[in-house]
Amino acid sequence: MTLSMFVRFYYGGGIVMHLIGLVGVLAIISLIRKTLWVRKGRDVSKEPFFISNAKFILVIAIGLANVWENASWLTNILNPPPPPHPLAFFYHFPFPVNFSGTVYALFYLAVIIVWDDILRLVTDLRKFDR
C-alpha cells in the first residue's frame, strides 16, 4: 500500500486522530480517578497515574500529527480526497468537527495540564494546613 493510498483511506489524518483521542480519553479517565482520590483526602503525589505518560505521548503526537498532516496536505493536492464517508463523524470522535491532529493533541494537553495543576494545588494546600 503506497503512502498516497494509505492517506486517502484515512484522509483527514484519521488514524492519528484516533490515537490522540485514545490517549486523551485515557488521560481524562485517569484524571477522574485522581480527582476522586484527592476528594477522599488521599495523598496522590507518589501514586502512579497515566497522566504524566499522556503528556509525554501527546507532545510526541504533536510532532507525528504535523508530519502526517503535511503528507495528507500534499496528497490531497495531487489526488483530491473522496467525499465524506457516512461514518465520518467517528473519524474525529469525540470532537464535533474535524480539527487538525496538532490542534487535537494541544487541546488534550491543555485540558490535562490545567486539570492536573488544580489537583496538585489542592494537594499542596493541605501541606500548608498541616
Partner: peptide
C-alpha cells in the same frame, strides 16, 4: 497554570 495555558493556546493559534 495560566502561563502553561497561554503557551498552549498560542501554539494552537500558530499552527492554525
Amino acid at each position: 497554570t495560566l502561563a502553561k495555558f497561554v503557551s498552549i493556546v498560542t501554539l494552537i493559534r500558530v499552527f492554525s
